[in-house]
Design a protein around this nucleic acid. Structure first.
Lengths: 101, 101
DNA sequence: GTAAATTTGTCAAAGATTGACAAAATGAAT
DNA sequence: ATTCATTTTGTCAATCTTTGACAAATTTAC
């Protein structure tokens, strides 16, 4: 899925014909902040993922992966992550895995 | 470099024969917290990277990359990042790059 | 044993994120 | 062009997280 998590939510919302107010109500969040989430200004609250999955009948594990990959992509984007830096990070992540065993 | 940033600092400190108190003094941080940083309990403060580079005569850009890759590795480790998830994240990071132009 | 060094405990201060509501802007319909 | 619904932006207090600071406990080296 090549879109931000916010764009994904907006797609879900519009294809289901919901307004911000309606979806925000179902998710129990402020509609103005949902707007910010869709536009990438704020993050979607991780704790609300299960509710989001419920509302749109999505697989929760898949949704969590969408979320996690989006957060990681954001991190990578923010640090201006080159291929080389990513490679180093992968090795270091692997190293951390070896540590905790 | 296959170690955490904290381990890297500890290596630098010990090879230079500094105690926690001494290095903490040079970096202007609390020695107890430096201990936590070395042991991965707390993060090194990004804003102190230039001071760290100064103290050990390190290339600042290389040090910043060490730091960034460590932070990314930590993030990857924390979410239990699989190869597949990382691949998706890379694509999403690329997508974000295309957006901001 | 003890002195130095390191680690752990704790908590207040600083910083970042989120919730909430108001107000402004956009857009669609007529 | 006016109105009404919707979306976006502004603001700020509340909440959550991180950091700084110092005390106390533990470990290490002699």
């Amino acid at each position: 899925m090549k879109e931000t998590f916010g764009e994904y939510i907006k797609m879900l919302r519009t294809t289901h014909g919901y307004t911000l107010t309606q979806l925000a109500g179902l998710l129990d969040i402020d509609f103005a902040n949902l707007s910010r989430i869709e536009n990438g200004i704020r993050d979607f609250d991780k704790k609300k993922l299960s509710k989001l999955a419920e509302v749109f009948s999505l697989n929760i594990e898949a949704l969590q992966d969408e979320y996690a990959s989006d957060q990681l992509a954001k991190h990578m984007y923010e640090i201006g992550c080159s291929k080389e830096l990513l490679k180093v990070a992968e090795e270091k992540a692997e190293y951390r895995r070896t540590l905790k065993k």
